[in-house]
């Protein structure tokens, strides 16, 4: 796309500005987390890492981490499986109710999450299930597994259906086609969907709010402390949660990169 140099520069600056704005509040939290004072005011006079130490030692925070982790891991695994098959139904196969299915999947994404959470609470209540972190997994799945499906579907759209037909034509059974062709080709999509699922579940608050019962996830605790009963631990716990996300993201990116490298060396052998 041709464009004048000045317009290009202006557009680039605009992009930089947008990113700056997106990260500004996170930077503020970062500063706040290393302020020594119990009641925070800027500019920060003395820096300390003591809140991090307290946060890590706190058994409450450890419980929160553990709950968040359990929920996110379970959501990730289920979303990957559901999303893999869902994406095939969404993008690959021409079946009668595909159009309805595509629209149905999108609906939960469009729905207000707090309302989804409340509706689930009523539903669990009607079923006589006592909410815990396990019910929160179900709640997260409503919103996250459709997103996982969409991510994998993008990959599923990208590959030529005749690849599967060719394999079948050469004698492959349905299962062999999945194992030899569909699976390997969709695998990168499945991994990135898994990564998304984990991170979205890890950071989710509105769905957890009503569905965790007596258990509590990190974002829930942070919200409660922000709205009432402020704790100086809030910024440091927030940053810890962000760092976990980033570490995981990096880990995921490395895994993806390894998968690609491996498939290249495999075929280059």
């Amino acid at each position: 796309m041709k464009m004048s140099r000045s317009a290009r520069i202006a557009l680039t600056l605009y992009g930089v500005l947008a990113i700056f704005f997106l990260y500004l509040p996170i930077i503020s939290v970062g500063f706040a987390s290393v302020s020594k004072a119990r009641y925070l005011t800027f500019p920060i006079k003395r820096y300390a890492t003591k809140w991090y130490g307290k946060a890590i030692e706190s058994s409450t925070v450890q419980d929160l981490l553990w709950t968040s982790l359990s929920v996110a891991l379970l959501v990730t695994v289920i979303s990957m499986v559901v999303g893999f098959f869902g994406a095939l139904a969404f993008a690959r196969y021409q079946w009668r109710f595909r159009g309805v299915f595509q629209k149905l999947i999108l609906l939960p994404i469009f729905f207000p999450q707090a309302v989804l959470g409340l509706a689930l609470l009523l539903w669990f209540n009607a079923l006589g299930i006592i909410p815990s972190w396990k019910t929160a997994v179900v709640a997260h799945l409503v919103w996250i597994s459709p997103i996982a499906t969409l991510i994998i579907a993008i990959r599923a759209y990208g590959f030529d259906p005749s690849l599967e037909e060719a394999a079948r034509d050469m004698g492959a059974s349905t299962w062999t086609v999945m194992k030899e062709i569909t699976g390997p080709l969709l695998w990168p999509g499945v991994v990135s969907a898994g990564l998304f699922a984990f991170l979205l579940s890890w950071g989710n608050f509105p769905l957890s709010l009503f569905t965790t019962g007596a258990d509590s996830t990190l974002p829930e605790w942070l919200y409660a402390k922000m709205v009432s009963g402020y704790s100086p631990l809030v910024p440091s716990v927030g940053i810890l949660s962000i760092v976990t996300s980033i570490v995981l993201l990096l880990f995921g990116v490395i895994v993806m990169w390894l998968i690609r490298a491996r498939s290249e060396t495999l075929s280059a052998r």
Binding site: L22, Y23, L24, P25, I26, I27, S28, V29, F31, A32, L40, T41, F42, L199, L200, W202, G203, N204, F205, L218, P219, L222, Y223, M226, V234, P235, G238, S241, I242, S245, I246, L249
Partner: peptide, 24 residues
Amino acid sequence: VTLFVSENIRLFGWVLTLMKGGLI
């Protein structure tokens, strides 16, 4: 990446940024 940071934390960050005695 910002999507993976809980919305609460980011909004809380704005409070810290915009409040009287905040970052700005």
